[in-house]
Lab assay of single mutants.
Amino acid sequence: ETEYTFDDKREADRAAKEAQNNGLRVHVTKDGNRWKVRID
């Protein structure tokens, strides 16, 4: 399990989409004014 934090939602969405394309499970959550992408 890996977690990334992004300031920009577009960057978070791009990272999530890339991980999904690689067959990974992805969870995107909002943390204040930042975005967390957790990859299982």
Rank of each mutant, 00 (worst) to 15 (best):
E1D: 11
E1Q: 14
E1R: 13
E1L: 14
T2Q: 12
T2N: 09
T2S: 10
T2A: 11
T2E: 09
T2C: 15
E3R: 04
E3A: 07
E3L: 11
Y4F: 11
Y4W: 14
Y4H: 06
Y4Q: 08
Y4M: 12
T5I: 14
T5M: 13
T5S: 09
T5P: 02
F6G: 01
F6T: 02
F6M: 02
F6I: 02
D7E: 11
D7P: 05
D7N: 10
D8L: 07
D8W: 05
D8S: 15
D8V: 05
D8G: 04
D8F: 07
K9R: 10
K9E: 11
K9T: 02
K9P: 09
R10E: 15
R10Q: 13
R10N: 13
R10V: 12
R10W: 13
R10P: 06
R10T: 11
R10K: 13
R10G: 12
R10I: 12
E11T: 08
E11M: 09
E11D: 14
E11R: 05
E11A: 11
E11V: 05
A12H: 00
A12T: 02
A12G: 01
A12Y: 00
A12D: 01
A12P: 01
D13M: 15
D13P: 00
D13Y: 15
D13W: 15
R14W: 08
R14E: 11
R14G: 04
R14K: 13
R14Q: 11
R14L: 10
A15Q: 05
A15I: 13
A15R: 08
A15V: 15
A16C: 09
A16T: 05
A16V: 10
A16K: 04
A16R: 04
K17T: 10
K17P: 00
K17H: 10
K17V: 10
K17L: 13
K17N: 09
K17M: 13
K17W: 12
E18Y: 09
E18P: 01
E18N: 09
E18H: 11
E18V: 11
E18F: 09
E18I: 13
A19M: 14
A19S: 03
A19Q: 04
A19N: 03
A19R: 02
A19P: 01
A19Y: 12
Q20T: 12
Q20H: 09
Q20V: 12
Q20G: 06
Q20A: 11
Q20S: 10
Q20F: 10
N21L: 13
N21V: 09
N21Q: 13
N22E: 09
N22S: 11
N22W: 06
N22R: 15
N22Q: 13
N22L: 13
N22D: 06
N22K: 14
G23D: 02
G23M: 03
G23P: 00
G23T: 01
G23A: 03
G23I: 02
G23V: 02
L24R: 06
L24S: 06
R25E: 07
R25A: 08
R25W: 07
R25N: 10
R25S: 09
R25I: 11
V26Q: 01
V26H: 02
H27F: 12
H27D: 06
H27K: 11
H27G: 04
V28W: 02
V28H: 00
V28L: 08
T29E: 13
T29H: 10
T29V: 13
T29R: 08
T29D: 05
T29G: 05
K30P: 08
K30Q: 13
D31Q: 08
D31K: 04
D31N: 05
D31I: 11
D31F: 08
D31T: 06
G32W: 00
G32H: 03
N33V: 05
N33I: 06
N33R: 06
N33L: 07
N33A: 07
N33Q: 08
R34N: 07
R34T: 10
R34V: 13
W35F: 04
W35H: 01
W35S: 00
K36I: 15
K36N: 06
V37C: 03
V37F: 01
R38G: 04
R38L: 12
R38E: 08
R38W: 14
I39S: 02
I39Y: 05
I39H: 03
I39W: 04
D40R: 09
D40E: 15
